[in-house]
């Protein structure tokens, strides 16, 4: 059985004790007149969400697609759980990897349920098991199976279709997910909601996720680590905080731009900055569970130096001062 991905005979333990799920070794992709990947080296630890970030055309999609062999590198090797993907059965490899693309690519002639259980069917699961699993997945991505199971893709909104795409990718419970700008085609509020829900899911499922985006804000919000790419090469591979705090090259600095200070706040939970209420309760407030950035935006929008913090019942229980926010933003600069 070459298609099994669970077994990992030659796993490599990292210093931190984590295992490498995906490893790119000097990966080069050449087209007749263009070099799309110029020797990429990258390791993705198991259970981590890593984004490939960079300007359009820098090779993110190309790199992602070398993992499930939709693209074969001209040079170099891609390892999945220590195995050279070149040596695995192509169809088996793909059935073991969840794949989500921006244009979604739902099968128009299949119902939502049939779309969702495509991979289990290819894997030969019995009818009852795959049906139950697909319904479970639809519920997991927030689509009530009773309402949506028998709809056709044309009867879905963009956000709903994207959820089906995610349910389809998750249905056979693959350990690895490849996601190519999965939230790129929906409107900003829907995108944020999908991001939040995906983060919540990822917290439970702990998949190894390779996620392509050109949206810095999205990358900062969701990533364990960000791989910032430029013209077929890795510029910097770091945690969001490190990337924002210590850009290593001029390209990274200019890609992050002036908003990087503000972006750092989107990774800082409000908890640590809350102080007891003074005599006066601030006239506006944000939720306790929000990020420092939300508090900062609220201050910018309303004007003022103090913003209230409310608990889940809406009662204002504390406050955050502008000074604390600014300090959090500039820490270890």
């Amino acid at each position: 059985m070459t298609g099994r991905l669970e077994q990992a005979p030659s796993e490599v333990a990292e210093p931190g004790g984590q295992f490498t799920a995906i490893r790119f070794e000097n990966v080069v992709k050449r087209y007749t007149d263009f070099e799309a990947l110029r020797g990429v080296n990258l390791e993705v630890s198991r259970g981590q969400l890593v984004t490939l970030l960079g300007p359009s055309g820098c090779g993110k999609t190309t790199l992602l697609r070398t993992v499930n062999r939709l693209i074969e590198p001209s040079q170099g090797t891609v390892y999945l759980n220590g195995q050279d993907v070149e040596k695995l059965d192509q169809v088996g490899l793909r059935r073991g990897i969840g794949y989500v693309i921006q244009s979604i690519g739902l099968f128009p002639h299949m119902t939502v349920l049939e779309n969702t259980l495509v991979v289990p069917r290819l894997l030969g699961w019995d009818r009852a098991k795959r049906g139950a699993r697909a319904r479970e997945m639809l519920a997991l991505v927030g689509l009530e199976p009773a309402t949506y199971a028998s709809r056709y893709p044309r009867e879905l909104s963009g956000g709903q279709a994207q959820r089906v795409g995610l349910a389809r990718a998750l249905c056979a419970d693959p350990p690895v997910l490849l996601m190519d700008e999965p939230f790129g085609a929906v409107d900003p509020p829907t995108r944020e909601r999908l991001q939040d829900e995906f983060l919540r899911l990822q917290g439970e499922l702990k998949k190894t996720v390779l996620f392509v985006t050109h949206d810095l804000e999205e990358a900062v919000k969701i990533s364990d680590r960000i791989c910032l790419m430029n013209i077929g090469q890795v510029e910097q591979y770091d945690t969001p905080a490190e990337l924002l705090g210590r850009p290593k090259t001029e390209f990274v600095r200019s890609f992050l731009g002036p908003s990087r200070t503000l972006l750092r706040l989107s990774r800082v939970p409000l908890d640590g900055l809350v102080e007891p209420l003074g005599v006066r309760v601030p006239p506006f407030s944000v939720a306790q569970t929000a990020m420092a950035r939300d508090a900062f935006s609220s201050l910018l929008a309303h004007g003022g130096r103090v913003v209230g913090v409310r608990d889940e019942r809406g009662k204002v229980v504390g406050m955050v001062r502008l000074e604390s926010l600014l300090q959090a933003a500039s820490e270890d600069e």
Partner: peptide, 24 residues
């Protein structure tokens, strides 16, 4: 995009022809 998704999900070329391309 549908064809790419089909290949990416792990349809073999023959399965893709009969289960995706032909119906479409």
């Amino acid at each position: 995009d549908v064809l790419e998704a089909a290949s990416g999900m792990g349809y073999s070329p023959t399965q893709r022809l009969w289960r995706v391309e032909f119906p479409l």
